[in-house]
Amino acid sequence: MTKALSISGLKKSYDNGFEALKGIDLSVEEGDFFALLGPNGAGKSTTIGVLCSLVVKSAGQVSIFGTDIDQDFSKAKRDVGVVPQEFNFNQFEKVADIVINQGGYYGLPRAVAVERAEKYLRKLGLWEKRNMPSRSLSGGMKRRLLIARALVHEPRLLILDEPTAGVDIELRRSMWKFLKEINAEGVTIILTTHYLEEAESLCRHVAIIDKGLIVENTNMKSLLQRLDKEVFVFDLLSVLTQAPSLEDYPVTLLDGKTLEVELKKGQSLNHVFSLLADQSIEVVSMRNKANRLEELFVSLVDKTEDQDEPVVGAKQ
């Protein structure tokens, strides 16, 4: 299968000596929904900046659908649509003009750009606002405008840099639905996000970047399988005065009617339920304590923190 994106040895150093990317290797298959995760300042936006030519790389190779950006960046750019983190459109320009003009910059005849602008503004619920200046839109609408603008030239690879930051949950879910639809139509998607639940629900593959290095690159399923424990929260029917004893399962009573139970990999939830039933404890609902991916993410990023810790007492 063609690689939508292939990055090898990508480095970026700034004039002040800061090394934002220390040699990244990454590949994304065509049609994938790929998450690029990492804490603030890890290098996610720098990587995206290189892919869309806003950041000039210091070393390494980048190919987009087989086109080396050093050989023909213009061709590579046609296949990429970028949704940046910041609202980088003209605040005084009309919504429709922003999308239509972007089509013009990609060489789309005006009639086609107008047609596509209508298509994507309608899909993203912005058609009614087409003649409004962009500054009058709400934060969520501005995010959707960025997506419409990125799609007007119908790229094969869509890169979204924290597209749902500051967006309410209802809108976030409608954006997820939209992104799943366009991915199903064949558009490869790379997503950076701080909402790990978002990555878990949308993405098939994930790379975690920290301090300019890829610390994990795998598919979501196998990453989640590496979780060795999970904490479940049980809401109880009756009030308990003390935490019940559940054999090998560590239990914490949060309040009279809420219980936290920790399960190791391979342990059975059915067994926990039967132990609770034996003690006449009825469960009315259950949920994960924390997002599973979040736990893994923290453990992976913590690991690199540990490696960077100076050795206490080391000779200077």
Binding site: S74, Q102, R149
Partner: peptide, 18 residues
């Protein structure tokens, strides 16, 4: 300078426009 200041110059820079 206005498009640079508002960063909307990036619309052009990310496109294949020479």
């Amino acid at each position: 300078f206005g498009v640079k200041f508002q960063k909307s110059v990036e619309e052009l820079l990310v496109s294949p426009t020479p």
